[in-house]
């Protein structure tokens, strides 16, 4: 608000065509700097939000159109705001639950098992691939 007011002073000073005294020159420089900072902060905030989303999307290997990004940005923000509720409860002394019951790791020998109902599925698995060459799945060139 202070920035806006200072900006208004500058604009009205220019409008009135005042001679620039030393005092009003200082005011004008101060006001221009304030506007710059104000605009800069706003731009940074906007860019951060969208940039955060694009960073997250690229980590998730998702390409988003501009329209999608705008909608999703709003919806993600809404959810994250809701997640902030979790700060209300005191859980610092608790261990995180990764599993609803604790279990020991079950091991077996690294060998084909008898009576295994899922025998060699390679063919039926490859059957779902879009394009095959021999037993290789074809994709566009890396380079």
């Amino acid at each position: 608000m202070k920035f806006v007011k200072t900006a208004q002073t500058v604009l009205s000073a220019r409008r009135d065509g005042c001679k620039s005294t030393q005092k009003s020159q200082k005011t004008r420089r101060g006001a221009e700097k304030a506007i710059d900072i104000f605009v800069y902060i706003t731009i940074v905030v906007i860019i951060m939000d969208t940039r955060e989303l694009y960073t997250t999307a690229s980590l998730a290997q998702l390409s988003l159109s501009d329209a999608e990004a705008e909608t999703l940005s709003r919806e993600v923000s809404r959810m994250l705001e809701h997640f902030a509720r979790m700060r209300e409860i005191d859980v610092d002394s608790l261990e995180p639950t990764t599993h609803t019951f604790s279990k020991v790791n079950r091991l077996r020998t690294d060998a084909k098992e008898n009576g295994e109902r899922l025998s060699d599925m390679t063919d039926s698995l490859l059957h779902n691939a879009p394009e095959l060459e021999d037993r290789f799945i074809v994709i566009p060139n890396v380079l």
Partner: peptide, 17 residues
């Protein structure tokens, strides 16, 4: 992924990431 997933799925993937 962009073509195959619907909006709700994308939302949860982004949130989760």
């Amino acid at each position: 992924r962009d073509e195959g997933f619907g909006p709700e799925v994308k939302l949860r993937i982004l949130l989760g990431t």
